[in-house]
């Protein structure tokens, strides 16, 4: 698949995202942003609708837990519903 690539592409078209170190920097930036956002809870007045929102860092914790939960739930679902790609083409 890579054979039709112009031979000089690596030289002229190298993108900054192709450098693994730059990707690592992005990930570190995200981690720092997460930490800052978590502690930002100390800095503003909350106007909660529900008691649970008063928990320090509620939205951060909830975002993490629920997002991971959906992924693991999806893996479980896939074990249940995944079939071969031609499933509907068989037997008419």
């Amino acid at each position: 698949m890579n054979h039709d690539q112009p031979p000089n592409e690596r030289v002229t078209g190298a993108h900054w995202l192709e450098d693994r170190r730059n990707v690592d920097r992005l990930v570190i930036a995200l981690a720092v942003a997460c930490a800052l956002l978590f502690f930002a809870d100390a800095l503003y007045a909350k106007h909660p609708y529900f008691d649970i929102e008063n928990l320090f860092g509620f939205y951060a914790i909830f975002g993490f837990v629920v997002s991971a939960g959906f992924v693991f739930g999806a893996l479980w679902l896939r074990a249940l519903v995944m079939r071969p790609r031609d499933y509907y083409d068989r037997d008419g």
């Binding site: 503003y44 939205y59 993490f64 629920v66």
Partner: peptide, 12 residues
């Protein structure tokens, strides 16, 4: 802030 917290940790 709350929305940013949700999405940042989801991205994490």
């Amino acid at each position: 802030v709350n929305q940013m917290q949700l999405v940042a940790f989801s991205a994490l």
